[in-house]
Design a protein around this nucleic acid. Structure first.
Length: 657
RNA sequence: GGGCGCGUAGCUCAGGUGGAUAGAGCAUCGGCCUUCUAAGCCGAGGGUCGCAGGUUCGAGUCCUGCCGCGCCUACCA
């Protein structure tokens, strides 16, 4: 509704300016500083003043005069030095919300719809438990997916599994060479319900990393393991499979606690076995995107020259794609994967269904064997735009990947490759002390301390979630002692996840989160539970109404134009309605700027507005019938908008709080 | 050395393409539960937007320089 009007106003000004001054000006609109100044401000007169050499105030007055009336606009006036403030026709606006026309809602966010967007996120090495840094990635990625879908795009969610990499190899080294465990031993550990296998690997990985430091000769074990994993046979390869598969299953479980689901898991083992790299290598050689270095420190390696990507990264060294021993680096494999995402590789994976989520959605995983004749396999890949959700420290590598596409002549796909970068989650010094981590004097002075999987330094995702649930449970139990323990836990879990997702989303992407338990565990103020609480309150009012044996009025019939007219004469009601009607404005802004934090902020403001409404007006005891209908409608509208916004953020609305 | 990012209230952070009186939350202090749930509401104090120049009608926002902090700059991923 808001978008529609905004567009109409922009068009009207654009047309008038063209007719009156012969200038093709792209008319922008902004929000006036104060709500009392109107709903939209048009700064066009300032832009024209320069060209026309006339005072903006004069131009503004002429424009208003010339435009006449615009449908849905009640008044326009010159303000300040030349702003044109626009006031909406309130009742008409509200009618559009009560009786939406098909083209009314959401049409403006539908402008830039892309046929197939691929979002790759999570991408955790399957060798240890997930930590908060991984959660930021997954929550950011998942929310991006929800936002894009809410804006009308078709989105495919991929979670890349590096099941043949160094990190898995290190845990295998730990099991085999350090602990002398057989595959049968490891299988028993995985099957043992009293063992948290991902936690066990977390510690083992840290121990193995420390072991390398003290005994550098042990690094040879890693090379041996990597080689075994790549050739695919023997004890070491079997261990790698066991570890990676078990950890992937646990990661999926952890992510599902947050409501994060995927469509397909492309695995590195298939990239290897199906010779994706070989195909990409041929392409890169053919187009001379890489060359065999014959001198200097990179002699014997296939490298990409710095000119290809130096524009953004500022490095002077070429980037090694194939090592002198013939093995391919991670970036090389990433180029092959990116080519596949766009359908440019000329190869595809085979797929098998991996599991079905409780909501019925099916998750697929890649395989190297053609099979399942009886199942129709969804068409994966072949995206027109690709978002890679990866932390900002890997910008350099993402630049190289994009340079690879460009060098292969895929300029369009290079332009459609988005590195959806975000800053890391670190630990506040206070948090480290709380975790019993010893800090050097130097670290103590820093604003934050980096998480390190190698050192086993970090907050495990499941630990944090458990802690949040425990805290929420205390609150729920105190308020709803009569409910069953099982039900209390369900509610507490929804609140905990709401708190966690909101906490990770409220920071803009390029802000480092210095993790702090006190802030993450807060349920008050600008938090997920605050927004959930508002939604629950709105729903409670309507529930209470039914408990009293009444039914919700038929708003489309009862809310006549006259009713709306008189209700919205109140500035208060108008401002509240306006604020509540802007979900799609906020969504559009968040999508365009790629900033989920914008939508999170809107959710908070929406909840604030509702809490004001809730506090100021007593709905069920309102005696004036007409006014009561209006209040009920506002409540219902708030409820729907709050729940919808929370939903896009991946946050559920509990049955009660 | 080079590249990227950050520096805004005591703390943590917002501040579309320059625009009207720089905003939240937390913390502090003071009010509000017989009324649809106080995980809430109302109010108060708190600012040289790192520093110095520049661009212009106008700069937290753009440009230059400087200071401080972080990340990247691997034949690791």
């Amino acid at each position: 509704m808001f978008h529609l009007l905004e567009q109409r106003i922009q068009d009207a000004f654009h047309g008038r300016i063209l007719a009156q001054f012969g200038i093709d000006l792209e008319v922008s609109t902004e929000q006036p500083r104060q709500s009392s100044l109107g709903e939209l401000a048009v700064p066009a007169a300032f832009q024209l003043a320069r060209q026309l050499k006339q005072p903006p105030k004069k131009i503004a007055a002429e424009l208003i005069e010339g435009i006449g009336s615009i449908e849905g606009v009640a008044a326009m006036e010159v303000a300040g030095n030349g702003y044109i403030n626009v006031r909406f026709a309130r009742a008409g606006y509200a009618e559009g919300l009560v009786r939406p026309t098909p083209r009314g809602e959401g049409s403006a966010t539908g402008r830039g719809i892309v046929d197939r967007i691929i979002v790759e996120h999570t991408n955790i090495n399957p060798n240890k438990a997930a930590h908060i840094g991984h959660l930021r990635n997954a929550v950011l990625g998942d929310t991006l997916v929800r936002m894009l879908r809410a804006a009308g795009n078709r989105v495919e969610v991929q979670n890349y599994i590096d099941n043949t990499g160094v990190q898995v190899a290190d845990v295998v080294v730990g099991f085999h060479f350090i602990e002398h465990k057989t595959p049968a031993d490891v299988k028993r550990l995985i099957a043992d319900p009293t063992v948290r296998f991902d936690y066990l690997c977390w510690d083992l990985y840290a121990r193995t990393s420390a072991f390398y430091k003290d005994s550098p000769e042990a690094v040879g074990w890693r090379a041996e393991t990597l080689h075994a994993v790549e050739s695919g046979g023997g004890t070491l390869a079997e261990l790698a499979h066991l570890v990676a598969d078990a950890i992937v299953a646990l990661h999926l479980k952890t992510m599902l606690r947050l409501g994060v689901e995927y469509d397909v898991l492309p695995r590195e083992s298939e990239i290897l076995h199906l010779k994706f790299w070989a195909a990409a290598f041929e392409l890169l050689k053919e187009r001379k995107a890489i060359y065999l270095e014959t001198e200097g420190k990179n002699s014997g390696c296939w490298v990409m020259p710095p000119e290809a990507f130096a524009g953004d990264s500022g490095t002077e060294d070429s980037k090694v794609i194939v090592r002198s021993n013939g093995t391919v680096t991670y970036v090389g494999k990433d180029i092959a994967y990116q080519l596949w995402k766009f359908g440019l590789l000329g190869k595809d994976f085979y797929y098998r269904p991996m599991m079905r989520y409780p909501d019925g959605h099916e998750l697929w995983v890649t395989t190297d064997e053609p099979q399942i004749a009886n199942r129709e396999v969804p068409a994966f890949g072949r995206g027109t735009r690709v978002f890679n959700v990866i932390d900002v420290r890997q910008s350099y590598l993402q630049d190289v990947v994009v340079a690879g596409l460009k060098a292969l002549g895929a300029a369009e796909q290079a332009a459609q490759s988005v590195h959806f970068a975000y800053e890391m989650v670190a630990l506040s010094p206070r948090c480290c002390i709380e975790l019993g981590i010893e800090l050097s004097d130097e670290d103590r002075q820093r604003p934050y301390v980096e998480v390190s999987g190698r050192k086993g330094l970090g907050v495990k995702a499941d630990d944090l979630i458990d802690r949040l649930i425990d805290k929420a449970l205390e609150e729920v139990a105190a308020r709803h002692a009569e409910k069953s323990a099982e039900e209390q836990r369900k509610i507490a879990s929804e609140i905990a996840i709401g708190a966690l997702r909101y906490f990770l989303l409220k920071y803009t992407r390029n802000s480092v989160i210095a993790f702090d338990f006190q802030e993450a565990l807060s349920f008050e103020g600008e938090t997920g539970p605050y927004v959930q609480y508002a939604a629950v309150r709105a729903r409670n009012i309507l529930k209470k109404l039914e408990e009293r044996g009444e039914t919700l009025p038929d708003f489309t019939a009862d809310l006549t134009r006259e009713t709306l007219e008189s209700a919205l004469a109140s500035e208060d009601f108008w401002q509240m309605l306006l604020a509540a009607s802007k979900v799609d404005v906020a969504l559009g802004r968040a999508v365009v700027s790629g900033e989920p934090a914008h939508l999170a902020r809107y959710a908070f403001q929406l909840a604030q507005t509702f809490n004001n409404f809730y506090h100021q007006y007593h709905i069920l005891t309102e005696e004036n019938r007409e006014r009561r209908v209006y209040l009920l409608w506002m409540t219902d509208f708030f409820r729907a908008q709050l729940i919808r916004t929370l939903g896009i953020l991946g946050i559920q609305t509990p049955a009660y709080m």
